[in-house]
């Protein structure tokens, strides 16, 4: 059944459906109760399911995640919201030392079915601490699943899959895509965690992207097509676990790859993807794998962010550099 909704509405629907489907699902965080979250992702949930199922906590991220650990240990499936990317940092200790490790420390006796939702990344003209691409911190921490949807349908499916997962999941929600309206089939099969997808077929080179960079990559492919070059676009969706199979099959089919991501490039998820692809596809590659990422700088202020974010032009420049014989 198709309907036109925003990513924000799709996430809201996923929470609603999960709360309906499973009485152990709890939603909590800062301003997620009566207000419905600063991005309205939890809109109406307290009214519909009551204070026990969707509630505001005191203002403390370490407290939110730490309490979620205890609830998950004792029979619940907490879905917590960090208000913005950079405001998740006070919870870092809980995330890396406990959320990520409890299963391992207890030889599997304790699993933590909890979801940490993080509105993330830039492109919204936000002031400092509201635009961080923090995926590398989480992806570098073994024990966490890390997902980044790029459209409303995946947002719905990935959030449902995350809530159903017995492992902790960090769901990175590209806030600049919250309000883009799309045709969505909420009854479609949930993509599942760990599955990339080819978003656009192409034969000359492959753009690998996730989250907020996928629409930019698709736009670049569109422009390239007008210039006579056929770019394939792969949407990673699941950063951890990573779908080597789909990504590498795509790159092997074109022999050229550019990885696109907003985060600073040094020691980044883009770096990891480039390394994996280089190792696995070396004999199929006509050129070194390129990366188009944010600069290695703190996220810039609103007036300068356009210079920092991967743009269509920067992506196409990188594609031009991929050692074309006819060039």
């Amino acid at each position: 059944m198709n309907q036109k909704i925003t990513m924000a509405q799709a996430l809201n629907q996923a929470l609603r459906d999960a709360l309906h489907a499973d009485p152990t699902v709890l939603v909590f965080g800062e301003d997620v109760g009566p207000l419905g979250g600063v991005f309205r992702i939890t809109d109406g949930l307290t009214a519909e399911f009551g204070e026990d199922r969707c509630f505001d906590t005191p203002l403390a991220e370490s407290g939110i995640v730490g309490m979620a650990v205890g609830l998950a240990m004792n029979g619940f499936r907490p879905v917590v919201e960090m208000q913005f990317d950079a405001f998740a940092y006070p919870a870092f200790e809980q995330v890396v030392s406990h959320v990520a490790k409890l299963r391992n420390r207890t030889r599997g006796a304790v699993s933590l079915p909890l979801v940490i939702r993080v509105p993330y990344a830039g492109g919204i003209g936000g002031v400092e601490h509201h635009c961080d691409s923090s995926e590398a911190y989480y992806a570098h921490t073994p024990g966490l699943h890390v997902l980044a949807p790029s459209n409303a349908e995946d947002a719905y499916g990935l959030l449902r899959a995350a809530i159903a997962s017995d492992d902790p999941v960090v769901l990175l929600e590209p806030k600049k895509l919250y309000w883009s309206k799309e045709e969505v089939d909420l009854t479609a099969a949930v993509p599942g965690i760990g599955r990339a997808v080819v978003r656009r077929p192409g034969t000359d080179a492959t753009l690998v992207a996730y989250g907020p960079s996928v629409p930019t990559a698709l736009e670049a492919a569109e422009v390239a097509a007008q210039e006579g070059r056929s770019l394939q676009v792969v949407d990673v969706r699941s950063i951890v676990p990573f779908d080597d199979e789909t990504v590498c099959a795509a790159v092997r089919s074109t022999g050229r790859a550019v990885v696109v991501a907003e985060a600073a490039g040094f020691a980044s998820v883009a770096a990891e993807i480039a390394a994996r692809v280089s190792e696995r596809c070396f004999h199929h590659l006509h050129a070194p794998v390129r990366r188009v990422t944010g600069f290695d700088i703190p996220y810039p202020p609103p007036k300068l962010e356009h210079l920092h974010l991967p743009s269509v032009d920067r992506i196409l420049d990188a594609v031009d550099d991929l050692q074309w014989e006819d060039a």
């Binding site: 600069f295 700088i297 300068l304």
Partner: peptide
């Protein structure tokens, strides 16, 4: 906005990598 501001104040002295990125921009 001064584009070099992006790179000038990350460290006391720009790293070679930041020089490279500033040149690209």
């Amino acid at each position: 906005p001064r584009p070099d501001d992006l790179f000038d104040h990350v460290y006391a002295r720009r790293t070679p990598q930041l020089d490279e990125q500033a040149a690209l921009l």
